[in-house]
């Protein structure tokens, strides 16, 4: 073995390796080739084993040549590897194509019930004005539901609330959330700003606008200087928040035994906007709630001195608000729980 022969072998190895690398069919073959050529027991190492037979002064030269050859082979393998991977990725991507127009895997979407959602919307609006939520029982005593609200037994105004009575004497299913006014006044000191949401019951045949179970939201505000004008201002804000800033409102006399003066509050018809249509009974207005200044008798039953304290109360049906807002024309849908109906809400 002499120097020339050895360098010749190295050059041969290089050219053969270059050709093999360039011809490697895929990454796996290339990897095998790399091991065959450059591995610990590879051909380059085998060639270099002959270096021991050379004179000492020739060895550095062979080392230099061997390095060049190794680098050359490595570069060739790298180069081939890069081109192979590019092609293989393309092939994989082509293989992995899907029909992107198919629908996705569905995720079940839930929904909140519109009655309770309307209640939450109402509460959120009044919360901005400092109103806090309080609840009171659904099974009430006659005294709190009627008498303490200035509706004595056999009073003709009782016709306004057809009542379901229960088999516990003196008790009934509350016909409105108004008895909560008494409970709040008895337990909280003015200034009072509360909302009383909840389920109510009436002896009422079911039709498109009546039900025997429904929800109501009562509002009560009492302190030393709360006026009818404040009630009007607040309800205007409410109507604008709920139905849109430009909506016109109307304040007119109403009648409730527990308020004096009493108020009916209308908003311009959301369907026709004023000229009159079937939805508004050709009046151009939709009544959305009843209200008034808390009656002095009620204040006294609440433990408050009507000479010092005054305030207002209002009551509305969240279902009615929801119907107006969403264009629903049949109250029965709320208790029917047809999922096709419920699924339209968030």
């Amino acid at each position: 073995m002499d120097l020339a022969q050895l360098t010749g072998d190295l050059e041969d190895l290089r050219s053969e390796a270059m050709a093999q690398a360039a011809a490697a069919p895929d990454s796996a073959a290339l990897e095998a080739l790399e091991i065959e050529l450059l591995g610990k027991r590879g051909r380059l190492t085998a060639v270099l084993r002959g270096i021991g037979a050379l004179p000492a002064e020739d060895r550095p030269r062979v080392g230099a040549v061997a390095n060049t050859v190794r680098e050359g082979i490595e570069a060739a393998i790298r180069h081939r590897g890069k081109s192979l991977r590019g092609g293989e990725l393309d092939a994989r991507l082509a293989r992995e194509r899907v029909d992107v127009t198919t629908p996705g895997r569905p995720i079940r979407r839930g929904s909140l019930h519109p009655s309770l959602e309307a209640m939450a919307d109402i509460a959120a609006i009044f919360a901005q004005f400092g109103f806090v939520v309080v609840e009171s029982p659904e099974i009430e005593d006659d005294r709190t539901n009627f008498q303490m609200l200035n509706i004595p037994p056999d009073h003709p105004a009782r016709d306004l609330w057809d009542t379901l009575y229960v088999d516990l004497p003196g008790h009934l299913l509350r016909t409105h959330t108004s008895p909560g006014q008494i409970r709040v006044m008895q337990s909280m000191a003015p200034p009072i700003r509360v909302l009383l949401p909840g389920r109510c019951f009436r002896y009422e045949a079911v039709d498109a606008s009546h039900g025997f179970e429904f929800f109501q939201v009562e509002g009560l505000m009492v302190d030393e200087g709360t006026t009818l004008a404040d009630l009007k201002g607040l309800l205007d804000q409410f109507a604008h928040a709920m139905f849109g800033a430009g909506k016109r409102t109307r304040f007119r006399p109403g009648y409730y035994p527990f308020t004096e003066p009493s108020v009916a509050f209308d908003v311009e018809c959301l369907v026709c906007g004023g000229p009159g249509c079937a939805a508004c009974g050709r009046t151009g207005w939709l009544t959305i709630l009843g209200a008034g200044m808390v009656h002095p008798v009620v204040l006294q039953y609440g433990g408050l001195d009507p000479e010092r304290y005054q305030g207002f109360a209002f009551g509305m049906g969240p279902e009615r608000i929801s119907m107006l807002k969403h264009g629903i024309t049949d109250l029965r849908l709320f208790m029917e729980n047809d999922l096709r109906f419920l699924g339209q809400f968030r």
């Binding site: 004005f129 400092g130 909280m188 700003r193 404040d230 006399p253 004096e260």
Partner: peptide, 26 residues
């Protein structure tokens, strides 16, 4: 209070001003 209602009713509920409460917050 009945007199107050009658005043408002005949004067016109629409002429009652619309204000926001200026009393203390609970």
């Amino acid at each position: 209070a009945d007199i107050a209602e009658e005043v408002a009713r005949i004067h016109g509920y629409d002429l009652v001003p619309s204000t926001l409460p200026s009393t203390s917050m609970p």
